[in-house]
Write a protein that binds this DNA or RNA. Structure first.
Length: 954
RNA sequence: GCACGGGUGUCCGAGUGGCCAAAGGAGCAGGGCUUAGGACCCUGCGGCUUAGUGCCUUCCCAGGUUCGAAUCCUGGCCCGUGCACCA
């Protein structure tokens, strides 16, 4: 088949007949489906193609069920990648050149477009790149309304985003606060995972800095992850052999390790080094401990690491194993203690103070676990680490603060932690310090730190009321697949304030601080609304698009006449946009890949909730799974990809679409295996060719006078279509496809096998319905076949039939014949009969059928004694005695299967199929009723059962 | 750490209470076709048995619910994926 010709022919037809350019039609139900617009920076591979194809299938199916369908497309070009790429290409960076030349398949002579400017780069990628997304969409035959095409840097779009953020701000959802980020002091930039050479995935931990008053204005600073344990403090640890720094922080003087201040200076402003002192100078001193307002003693410890925290550690021997062991070791070593000039009696009087009750560990969990694990000294590093982890984890989840913790007594540890921290900070006894979870190194080679960005703008997704309202929106939405709803719910739970501005990148300037750019996940949340007017708004100059204009279009606020006059926009244009939004919204489905659930998809629901009224939000989401190639993750940089362009060229767009939808359901992980594809390609291809060959023999008209096999085929087509519709409604595209492809092929083959005359009308019924059902998946071939069948307009103006009449009895009857064929083959093989001379079929007698009917009606559970009781209530069965009991036993053995069977007249069916069977086996076939047998040399007849006639072959 | 998902025969993978010794494919073995190779077609691939069958042992491990479990529940072991400034 000449795929290329057919594809081009119909793509041209669709565009010149505006098949996928919907107009508002009052009375026709709208269906607006939208798939997350791509960032057009490379070649399109099958992973992308799957997402867009699934959306297209959903859209086309809805067209075929009578909806007015809108599916727009745009380009998300916001952010830094384009700028970074253009800069790298301008500098002649070889790695980047290679990526664009080899992976994105851009010829060298076209690089001039890429290096000219970010705008030119974007334009090339969208409109000229042979392997780009737009080229791919067109090749795949997607039903996109291109009149609405947009880029996120269009001037009108930017005004829309400004309106969006002004609206959010007016509701209090835009806030400004300090924000800790991973930061490279060398590059002077925040770093993401992809900027790192070491430490990817390591996060930021929040330490509490505790201030221990040494004298009037000088404090020793200890860092802790467990501020709630201040109530159990017994002493402070310092390293006697290192030098600590004295630093002015604000009005106070702090003492901590030098390494600490190097990091801390990125997090606070006013910080100034004053001097140094040795740890040993601090040993033995008394300091006023925060939280408990009590003096505690400074003791020496080797485990204090100047590179971790502050190099000073507060000691809570009740709950920190290392503190307990270090204290005990010091207490047991009088000579050492006295070498530091410590009062040994005072030292030995220090005892752990119970503060947390922990089930299974009592109220001194550190002491208990050290005893349990047999930890003797600080040198048991491994065991100490294990002990620490266990106690920390259990304490956090299950610990309860006890009566030594004042007002926190009885509170859970995980609650108390935050409250204690807050109280200490308020009393100026503590501060916050951010520390990386481990070593993080930037690609430039320098070690990263945490920097606190002052005045970062956020979208306040943590807002309780907003969250509640968004959860309500979500609860009314249809999430496909349904089991993902819980994922959304979980995301909504932990979703926190999201930074929304950056200093670099393409996009919309932040309206409240013009030098900043809204970051890409912030300007892609409600653009679906913009699509409804994108084709109209192009004629309005951007500068006229003040917030009031959008307020009118989307929210119906204000008076059209006044707005028209004030901003110089025609009333008719304003009205058209307002009407268009009102018609198309709410969005039926927002579609994207699963990995966007925690951000894009959720943000979109939140922001719709914030901005639009409940009836103008989103009705559902469709979440597409990943595509892997031969079991491995696809990666453009490793060349492990299949590009959609190449694939369409080799097997044709419709077959690509078919396989993308046929391997697994849309939300499941799809493993693309070339060999398997090739195998099923030839199978499917010959099926399609078979159908096309039959098209010339089909004739439109009333179907009448059907014989048994024809009735069966007609009925089977209807059954398949019904199941197809059921599956399509749930977006189970794979199941739907299987019904109307390989399964229907099997049916067709059986029918071909069975039929003895040609029915043109039935063939038309089959082919036309097949074309309509396959059209969402294989639109080009469907159109071609549709035309071959004599239709003039596009198949997408046809309708998929719904709720067709089917008759279980017809299927049941045919399965009797099919089963007989199977059984005959089996017996032939086992009995090693090559050419049967005669076949005898004995249909079970009337009383057995009655017995089955009786049991089917009355038997609740397949229990032998009650079955016999029921059966023996019938005199004619009772008369058969032990033989009847044997039959009952046989029936019960297969009861679960049999109870579903629909009773049919086996005698009549088999008698009617005699010619077929004798033709098939090339011998005489004799069908007799069990109790009227004339010839039964091996006495097989008695084995006849309902739905399973006995057989004798000669 | 938190969240979600998953462990099925040689391999990939379908299967969510009985129709399941478990779809489909790959692979392997035998046969057909062919000068040969490829492609294609047929048969078999847990064990024993059989004129269309019946039985035994199996779906990560251990328990449990049920007349009945690959499928439901509990515990354990193992493996993926995501976790925010990144589009």
């Amino acid at each position: 088949m000449d795929f290329k010709r057919i594809e081009q022919k119909w793509q041209k037809f669709w565009s010149s007949n505006k098949v996928f350019e919907p107009e508002i039609k009052k009375g026709k139900r709208p269906f607006y489906i939208q798939v997350a617009y791509p960032y057009p920076s490379g070649a399109m591979h099958i992973g992308h193609a799957r997402t867009y194809t699934a959306t297209d299938v959903a859209a086309k199916y809805k067209m075929l069920t009578g909806f007015n369908v809108l599916m727009p497309m745009g380009w998300h070009v916001s952010g830094t990648p384009v700028i970074a790429a253009v800069e790298a290409l301008q500098k002649g960076n070889e790695k980047t050149i290679k990526i664009f030349h080899e992976n994105a398949r851009i010829p060298k002579e076209d690089f001039k477009y890429l290096t000219e400017s970010p705008e030119s780069f974007v334009d090339y990628m969208i409109n000229k790149a042979k392997y780009g997304y737009k080229a791919g969409f067109k090749k795949l035959g997607l039903g996109i309304d291109w009149r609405r095409e947009l880029k996120t840097i269009d001037p009108q779009y930017k005004r829309f985003i400004e309106w969006q953020y002004k609206t959010l701000a007016s509701k209090g959802y835009i806030i400004k606060k300090a924000y800790p980020v991973r930061y490279c002091p060398q590059c002077k930039n925040p770093v993401g995972d992809h900027d790192l050479s070491e430490g990817e995935g390591l996060g930021i931990q929040e330490y509490t800095l505790l201030k221990f008053k040494l004298d009037e204005n000088t404090y020793l600073i200890a860092a802790t992850l467990r501020p709630e344990t201040v109530f159990g403090q017994t002493n402070l640890w310092v390293r006697p052999d290192i030098e600590y720094a004295k630093v002015k922080v604000g009005a106070e003087q702090w003492i901590a390790s030098k390494e600490f201040f190097d990091k801390y200076k990125e997090q606070v402003k006013d910080i100034e080094k004053v001097g140094t002192l040795n740890g040993s100078e601090l040993v033995g001193r008394q300091v006023l401990a925060p939280g408990i307002e009590r003096n505690i003693i400074v003791l020496p410890a080797d485990f204090c690491d100047p590179a971790t925290g502050t190099g000073i550690v507060t000691s809570v021997p009740s709950d920190a194993p290392i503190d307990y062991i270090a204290l005990r070791e010091l207490q047991q070593n009088q000579a050492l203690a006295e070498s530091f000039g410590l009062n040994y009696d005072l030292l030995t009087s220090i005892k752990p103070i119970p503060i947390i009750e922990l089930e299974g560990y009592g109220n001194l969990s550190a002491v208990k676990i050290c005893n349990d694990l047999g930890i003797k000294s600080q040198s048991d590093a491994e065991k100490l680490e294990e002990a620490k982890k266990t106690v920390y984890k259990l304490g956090f989840h299950k610990g309860i603060m006890n009566s030594n913790c004042n007002k926190y007594a009885g509170m859970q540890v995980n609650k108390a932690k935050e409250l204690v921290k807050k109280e200490l900070i308020e009393k100026n006894q503590a501060a916050i310090f951010y520390e990386l979870e481990g070593k993080v190194v930037c690609r430039c080679g320098s070690q990263c730190v945490v920097r606190v960005l002052e005045d970062q703008w956020f979208v306040k997704y943590s807002d309780e009321r907003w969250k509640e309202e968004s959860k309500k929106t979500l609860s009314g939405m249809q999430i496909v697949p349904a089991l993902f709803k819980i994922n959304y719910e979980k995301v909504f739970e932990w979703l926190d304030d999201k930074p929304c501005t950056r200093s670099k990148g393409l996009g919309t300037n932040f309206p409240f601080q013009k030098e900043l750019i809204l970051e890409p996940l912030a300007d892609s949340t409600i653009y679906m609304a913009y699509f409804t007017i994108a084709n109209i708004i192009k004629q309005v100059p951007a500068e006229k698009l003040e917030p009031e204009v959008f307020d009118y279009i989307f929210l119906g606020k204000g008076r059209i006449a006044e707005i028209s006059k004030k901003y110089g926009i025609k009333k008719s244009v304003l009205k058209e946009m307002h009407d268009s939004f009102k018609y198309w919204y709410p969005l039926a489905y927002n579609v994207s890949a699963i990995e966007l659930i925690p951000n894009h998809m959720s943000f979109s629901i939140f922001q719709h909730t914030a901005i639009f009224p409940p009836n103008k939000r989103q009705k559902g989401t469709l979440n597409l799974g990943m595509v892997v190639l031969e079991g491995k993750k696809m990666s453009s940089s490793k060349g492990n990809v299949v590009l959609i362009n190449d694939l369409c060229d080799s097997i044709g767009a419709d077959f690509v679409r078919f396989f993308l939808m046929n391997i697994v359901e849309p939300w499941e992980e799809l493993n693309w295996q070339q060999r398997e594809i090739e195998k099923s390609f030839s199978k499917l291809n010959s099926f399609v060719e078979l159908l096309f060959r039959n098209a010339s023999k089909a004739k439109k008209g009333k179907i009448k006078g059907l014989n048994l096999p024809e009735k069966w085929f007609y009925n089977r087509i209807n059954e398949r279509i019904n199941e197809y519709v059921q599956a399509m409604e749930k977006m189970e595209f794979r199941r739907a496809l299987q019904c109307i492809s390989f399964q229907l092929l099997k049916d067709f083959n059986w029918y071909e096998h069975r039929k003895n005359k040609y029915n043109k009308q039935l063939m038309y019924y089959f082919l036309s319905n097949w074309a309509v059902c396959i059209a969402p998946f294989m639109p080009h071939l469907a159109e071609e076949l549709w035309q071959k069948l004599g239709n003039r307009s596009s198949i997408f103006f046809a309708r998929i039939p719904k709720k067709l009449k089917t008759d279980q009895k017809i299927s049941a009857a045919e399965s009797i014949v099919a089963n007989i064929v199977d059984d005959l083959n089996e017996i032939k093989k086992l009995a090693k009969i090559d050419k049967p001379k005669k076949i005898y079929i004995y249909v079970c007698s009337e009383w057995k059928r009655n017995l089955f009917g009786l049991l089917k009606e009355k038997l609740q559970i397949p229990d032998q004694s009650s079955a016999i009781r029921i059966a023996m209530s019938d005199e004619s069965i009772k008369a058969k005695g032990q033989y009847a009991v044997n039959i009952i036993k046989k029936l019960l053995a297969k009861w679960s299967e049999l109870r579903e069977m629909v009773p049919v007249d086996e005698m009549k069916i088999l008698a009617a199929s005699k010619d077929f069977l004798s033709g098939l086996f090339e011998c005489d076939v004799i069908v007799q009723l069990e109790d009227k047998v004339e010839y039964d040399p091996k006495s097989k007849a008695k084995d006849a059962m309902p739905f399973k006639p006995a057989i004798y072959i000669e």
